[in-house]
Design a protein around this nucleic acid. Sequence first.
DNA 1: CTGTTAGCGCATTCAC
DNA 2: GTGAATGCGCTAACAG
Lengths: 339, 339
Amino acid sequence: MEKKTTIYDIAKKLGITGATVSRALNNNPKISKATKALVLKTAVEMNYEQNKLALALKSGKSFNVGVVVPRIDMIFFASIIRAIEDELAPHGYHIIICQTHDDEEKENKYLDTLLNAQVDGILISSSNKKTKPFNRVLLKNIPLVFFDRKQVMNGVSSVTIDDFDGAYKATKHLIMEGYTRIAHFSGNRDIDIYKNRFLGYKQALIDHDIKFSTNYVIQTPSNTVAGRQALKQLLKLKQAPDAIFSASDLAALGAIQELKQHSIKIPDEFAVVGFSNEPFTKFMEPSISTVDQSPLKMGEIAAQVFLQQVSNSSGKKVKKNIILPPELIIRKSSSKLSN
Amino acid sequence: MEKKTTIYDIAKKLGITGATVSRALNNNPKISKATKALVLKTAVEMNYEQNKLALALKSGKSFNVGVVVPRIDMIFFASIIRAIEDELAPHGYHIIICQTHDDEEKENKYLDTLLNAQVDGILISSSNKKTKPFNRVLLKNIPLVFFDRKQVMNGVSSVTIDDFDGAYKATKHLIMEGYTRIAHFSGNRDIDIYKNRFLGYKQALIDHDIKFSTNYVIQTPSNTVAGRQALKQLLKLKQAPDAIFSASDLAALGAIQELKQHSIKIPDEFAVVGFSNEPFTKFMEPSISTVDQSPLKMGEIAAQVFLQQVSNSSGKKVKKNIILPPELIIRKSSSKLSN
DNA sequence: CTGTTAGCGCATTCAC
DNA sequence: GTGAATGCGCTAACAG
């Protein structure tokens, strides 16, 4: 059970005082070259390591930031976190991970424990319906940045993607490829992102003089079984669609599986576009067109916004609401020309 | 700029002393019901929150553990981390994430900063060739657990999977399905996991009286292009193989793409088994047989081993080297019977 | 039951 | 240039 060496240990050994050691270690200008060198040398010899905890207590800066997501093993969130860590690590910050599992109560609990842990900031993709839990964060004046799913709050920054735009681009692409009866697999439209994807889809139709029909909109969970089911339902319509824009890649995959079963040719007879650019969409046969949400960019920017908040010590809050443009990735499932 | 309220703030307000407040807050037995209730009440009123940093400094326990992985946006590691977080959170621990990007120097730096941050433990999938950097960790007597990629060190626990066994099972499965000319895509065999997968493959052949041929073993990076390339090479052999066990799912996918191009029927004329159970393997057409590494189990157990180390205050280290059995997942790419 | 004191490890103000 | 003293917020040992 090795005892950790403190500045006092090395002070005693050198017959000097802790303050001097501290100064030597921190490149304090008023210190003699000689003692500084001596201190540095013995510090190494004694395996000294600074106790960041003590520093944090004294300075009020822990150099920890909390990152809260629904779950970390969804590639979208994992990518965001990867980018956040890559961006923040060089600045000396550590990332504390919290998973809410979409549980509001859990999220609130995490918010509290992060506050207790004296984090220097919180970056969060919130599952919360209320903004109240965040008031405590703001009250303590610690930087708060929403990403992906935001809360509308005074003076709080956010980084999201333009779901409306992504859906609009996807739908427009289908129209341009010559498809005219375009259906939509929607998620739960009580959630902003799905509502906006729906609205983008609808607007694209309207803007191109294609009549919008509620028959063509089906709410499906994000899995293949639901996608197959939904497609089956669409095929039963007297006027069956010839394309689908799905708000989820998995549902899109389900649709494709069902189309194959019916020997409907993709993309010649039927086109499919998904959403999220899940890794598998690239590998499938046919590869699936989808909308990329640029999670790396999102994480990077969220981290940068945080860094600005902390560096900007001028007291007045900088609020930024950054909306990233999603990128339509055209693959075989929706393009007769693409390879 | 709200000032954080401390126990002294509430002590002053109540005309009592900080120690009493502390006791009230910590359910100390010797305290009157009345003052306790009063303290609790005003604590809430004043928005008091315990400063864990001060507690950590005092107690020597930060309730933070460092988790070090090559990168977090690989689903295998993300899943492990998910499980670790789920397991440790109920015990009050926070997870600090570090990505090494397979950079040895970065890993060592992280080890140091985690030590400085006074973490209570370190769980790591190491990219290190040396064990020396870990000596500092052991010297400070903080629990260290290796997962996935282990270092062989005295008194250090590890949780890994049995790569040999996984490869053996996969190869044996191909043999049982009637394939006789089984090739192997190997990773870099300087790395333990790839060496063991190779050895498992080889042993399965030997045990079933199938002659092993170095012509059938190709070292390929983990990507589809390399897989296609490698398969092309195999098809040129006078005696081409009729099955492949690939140490990576992506190389397996490449092989399948190439087989399709050559109109070779899977699994009738040629079978493929991958390794890792990447999400896409399930969705492909045909779905790809593979070896699951049970990352959730691995993370869960790594976390449990850590918890045992900390709880076991008896001073003597408990060393555990747990080797998880991998699970062969049989799908269409290698089984004429499976659906 | 409650107050007093001390110390976790560090940086910093004030003397000298 | 260096030492002495102080406090960050908390808990625990010792009094009373």
